[in-house]
Design a binder for these strands. Structure first.
Lengths: 173, 173
DNA sequence: TTAAACTTTCAGTATTATCTGAAAGTAAGA
DNA sequence: TCTTACTTTCAGATAATACTGAAAGTTTAA
């Protein structure tokens, strides 16, 4: 039977399925997360056709989500000499992956959110004591917290894996 | 005109709308995020009726999402003496809020994810050198990263706001 | 040029998530 | 016990999101 597959492929299937499910709890399209999981565990770069077949998705869907992943810088396009079609490969280093995701989410979501908070704080800074002032204080506190998180995130993102680990050891000990 | 409203209420509307949008990028139901934003900026505890009216949502929707927020421990039920209906109030301290969310997401999503990774790693630990072994290593690395994140998260969650700030200052300097 | 090989786009369709409203459930107190 | 005031549930409706497939677009090379 050609239905036989290596044992690890069974685990891989499970990983892909679960990574997809997890993604959708975090506002990430299920197919996108699955493609990511597939490429993350791929021994070689893959092309669209292979991905379509493996995940049973249409060309349009595969293409859109691959582009999205490339946009997130989690996946790179690989051109093979003598071949016309594009191959895709994912970043496999977990630490780099984490940093990439953190940076991207910051840019896409935290930055706009911070804008709103600043705006709300600014618009209410003249409020006299009472509910208006309380609201102002609340927005200020949120704003400061977000700014603080961003700084931490930037600092950690700038670290090499080794120094991050060292830093963490100190924190955890 | 009774359409007039305090200036800060205008900012509050914007905050609620944007908090809802942000939430949905993070896999959180928009209404839930909006109720949270509403309560977070409420001078007094509110009851279901007020929330329904303010956000134009049905009783069922309001009730479900309030219960969900109580389940997340982001909102508390308040009973007023002499009153039969329940009032709701949100945690306003940003640091506490953050810790609560971190703990809850860990419990709900990271714990199960870790299970899958461990499983995948376990099932492939005997793989001989080659793609199977590479997969095993990949799962191990992800597992270790998740375990590490959990430790950091637990440590930070255990901190009082003050000591967290102190810690952060050292990191950022 | 023309054709072949591949990628992108998008209108229409399918799927999933969310919401409504009314009926059923619960509990206090008259 | 009955009524009233409230909360919960959930089947069906609606809205948001994701997916398909085929046509249009692009690039390479003969």
């Amino acid at each position: 039977m050609s239905n036989e597959q290596a044992n690890w492929e069974t685990s891989r299937e499970e990983f892909i399925a679960q990574w997809g499910a997890l993604g959708s709890h975090w506002g990430i399209n299920r197919t996108m997360a699955q493609i990511h999981a597939l490429l993350m565990t791929a021994p070689e770069a893959m092309h669209t056709e292979e991905i379509m077949e493996r995940l049973h998705v249409s060309r349009g869907n595969a293409n859109t989500n691959l582009r999205e992943l490339v946009g997130w810088a989690l996946v790179r396009v690989v051109v093979k000499k003598g071949e016309r079609r594009e191959y895709f490969e994912a970043e496999k280093d977990v630490w780099k992956m984490f940093i990439t995701i953190a940076k991207e989410r910051k840019r896409r979501e935290l930055d706009p959110a911070l804008g709103v908070l600043k705006n709300c704080a600014e618009q209410t800074k003249e409020e006299p004591a009472g509910p208006g002032k309380d609201f102002h204080r609340q927005m200020k506190e949120l704003q400061e917290f977000v700014e603080f998180s961003m700084k931490v995130s930037d600092t950690v993102s700038g670290m090499k894996h080794a120094s991050a680990l060292q830093w963490a050891m100190r924190l955890l000990s």
